[in-house]
Amino acid sequence: MLFAAIISLTLLGTALGLLLGVAARYLKVEGNPLVAEIEQLLPGSQCGQCGYPGCTGAAQALADGGAAVTLCPPGGIALAQALAAKLGVDADLSGVEDKGPMIAEVKEEICIGCTRCFKICPTDAIMGAAQQIHVVFREACTACGKCVDVCPTESVTLQPIPVTLQSWYWNKPILGSAA
């Protein structure tokens, strides 16, 4: 009786162990799929403002739980909310200083045409040539700020995107303390 139990448990253990071993080999997952999914959400401009080496590094840190969902300044509140939903955590948005969407702007009077900003721009949003005034394509600029850092004359600054009739909308109603 005792032997029967030992034999059956041993067989069961061996069979299941083999099954798991085979499964581990053939159903292996390369890397953490979450990292790729998070990277899809990030801007991809590799600006490094979060302190990680590019968006892949930031995605890795987010997946490991080592970084807050509010780490990406160009992404703003919208990205923080998307990341929180993806990771299933509550986003603490109180710390996010959402200055609203920004874009880089070249002050033409002091641009010397050094080409540094257009060479470093991760999204090819700056157009220029040596000794020529540079300009920013609003639609392509993510306001990562890399150009601001390299500009030798402080001619590039980040400015809020001007509100147009197409982008304007009602502000949130503020109710008195009574309501």
């Binding site: 991809g44 590799q46 990205l79 999204t123 392509a140 909308y169 009602w170």
Partner: peptide, 23 residues
């Protein structure tokens, strides 16, 4: 307000997808 905000979020998402392609 909410409809405007959702539309703005949608616009920024589209922009982000476009700039990602550029990057």
């Amino acid at each position: 307000y909410a409809k405007g905000d959702l539309a703005a979020q949608e616009r920024s998402k589209l922009k982000q997808e476009a700039t990602k392609k550029l990057a």
